[in-house]
Computed example of a mutant assay.
Amino acid sequence: MKISETQVLIIGGGPAGISCAIWLKKLGVDCVLLEASAQLGGLQTRSPYENLWIPGVQGKTGQQVAASLADHAAAVGVDVRLKCPVISVDGRQVTTAMSVFTAPYLVIATGSQPRTGGFTASDRIIIGPGVGMEALEVKGKRVAIFGGGDNAFDQARFARDRGAKVTIFSRNMPRAQTLLQALIPEVGVVVGDYAADQNAMTVNGEPFDAFGIMFGFEAMAPTGLTLELDNGYVRVDRFGETSLPGVYACGEATDYWHPCVTTSAAHGIQVAKQISIKLQSYSSKSVN
């Protein structure tokens, strides 16, 4: 199989990976962006909700934000390979089903995935927020939401608004924003240990029609890379470099800042700039 060479190889086409690729392109650095799915945008492609947290962007759903990011990448000519999941990584050599790539710099922008907490997804057990929960028929049904963070309370509110009878189960005191908790005062919140049976669809012996699993997220990392982790996320220094020299990570794979589209994009830009500085330094040394 032919090996293709580039200066920077980016794995993952969410906000961090796209922003990194756009800036590298504008900085004159050759890069290839590999995305496993059929579209760019990462977790935003799963969000049918208006994203109210991006400064200067109003009235757009997460899915529309994803489309805008993809349009921007296309407009500047980023080399994007869709439906190109990474099979393995060996040093700086990355193997996909169709090609083998090599580059002196590798950027892990694979984002995060919902934690399962031991649950198995089904037509009645939805893991993580977004389109799966929205597709669930909940009117008049009993829905148990597991978790105490923002997503748990957000998804409880959305399910309530669609006619569900919702109960939130959180092993610890909820950490969701006070504002989000205040929006659903009538929703019961059970704090403490609980016994959930996903086969019988019961919690503490009480029957439910559906479960929503909102235990937060954890990093997705390509097979073959042995990276230092921090609570399930890739550990990076202040420049975005991992424990492996020349291998960077950005966005929600790192949990470096509060994870959201804006901080992920900024982190991708930071990594792009740092790599471009290193490439320029190497080029200057070679000339001298």
Rank of each mutant, 00 (worst) to 15 (best):
A196M: 05
T254N: 11
G240K: 08
Q270W: 00
R157H: 13
P245E: 13
Q155I: 00
A152H: 02
S284L: 12
R235A: 15
R175L: 00
A253L: 01
D237Y: 08
A144F: 09
G188W: 00
N231Q: 15
T262D: 06
G268A: 06
A152K: 06
F239I: 01
P259V: 11
P207S: 12
L279S: 05
K278M: 14
T262K: 03
L244S: 13
G147Y: 11
C260S: 13
V234Q: 05
E241C: 03
A195W: 00
G149E: 01
L279V: 01
A159W: 07
G148E: 11
G232C: 02
H267Q: 15
T262I: 13
D209R: 04
L244M: 10
W257I: 00
R160L: 12
Y194N: 10
T262Q: 13
D230V: 04
D154H: 04
P222M: 00
T263A: 03
L183I: 01
P174N: 07
L183H: 04
G268M: 05
A196D: 04
A176H: 07
G149N: 02
I269G: 08
D150W: 07
T202I: 13
A265V: 09
K278N: 15
S170P: 02
A159C: 13
I275P: 14
T223K: 14
G148M: 05
D197S: 06
A219Q: 14
Q280H: 11
I275W: 10
G212S: 14
R160H: 14
V143H: 09
A159T: 14
Y233E: 09
G192M: 05
P207A: 14
G240R: 05
K165H: 10
E241L: 02
F153Y: 15
A210E: 07
V187R: 13
N172V: 02
F211A: 05
A159F: 13
I168R: 05
T223F: 04
T226Y: 03
G163V: 01
S283W: 10
Q280I: 00
N151E: 14
T202P: 12
M214H: 08
F215A: 01
P245M: 07
L180I: 05
V191W: 12
P207V: 12
T263M: 09
A156Q: 07
Y256N: 01
T242R: 02
D255T: 04
T167K: 11
P185M: 11
